[in-house]
């Protein structure tokens, strides 16, 4: 499946993601990591740590609807993976980001921006692992 190269929309989206990370640190002193936020909303350590995460998640859910209000449609979601791959993938992502303490936003955006050595290592490892997985599923197994 060929997808359109969208440098401007992607760059603008990236700038907004960066802005949200800066604002969360400026206002609440927290890392804008999707893993930490959803994990802490599901199983909070303390109640005071729960509410802001839920509010942030609700904000996230509103994002695509605001996008629709401006652009006229919801963001495109085309899924080349089978339901089996989605479920297995989701499970592995959940296990991996919990063991590895972060995902693309926590390590990939905030961690790299802070110059965290752990995040550089995590990003290098998960990017490599994703490239290999896509190569194997697409070009070896032909899924």
């Amino acid at each position: 499946m060929v997808t359109e190269f969208t440098p401007f929309a992607s760059l603008l989206g990236g700038l907004l993601i960066g802005l949200s990370a800066v604002l969360l640190m400026f206002l609440l002193g927290r890392i804008m990591g999707a893993t930490g936020i959803v994990s802490g909303a599901l199983m909070p350590d303390t109640m005071s740590d729960w509410a802001w995460r839920v509010a942030l998640l609700l904000g996230m859910f509103s994002g695509p609807w605001l996008f629709r209000a401006v652009s006229g449609e919801l963001p495109e979601i085309s899924v080349p993976s089978s339901p089996m791959m989605l479920l297995l993938g989701g499970l592995l992502v959940g296990v991996g980001v919990t063991l590895g303490s972060g995902c693309t936003s926590g390590h990939g955006v905030c961690g790299l921006a802070r110059g965290s050595f752990r995040s550089f290592a995590a990003v290098a490892l998960f990017m490599t692992s994703t490239v290999i997985t896509v190569f194997v599923t697409r070009h070896v197994l032909g899924v």
Binding site: I17, G33, A34, T35, V38, V79, P80, S81, M85, L86, L88, G89, G90, L91, L92, V93, G94, V95, G96, V97, T98, L99, G100, S101, C103, T104, S105, H107, R118, A121, A122, V123, L125, F126, M127, T128, S129, T130, V131, I132, T133, V134, T137
Partner: peptide, 20 residues
Amino acid sequence: LASGAVIFGIGWGLAGFCPG
């Protein structure tokens, strides 16, 4: 951290979605 990142990458490659 290392094993978690590798497992996350496999899942990301299979599904195409990351948490964020």
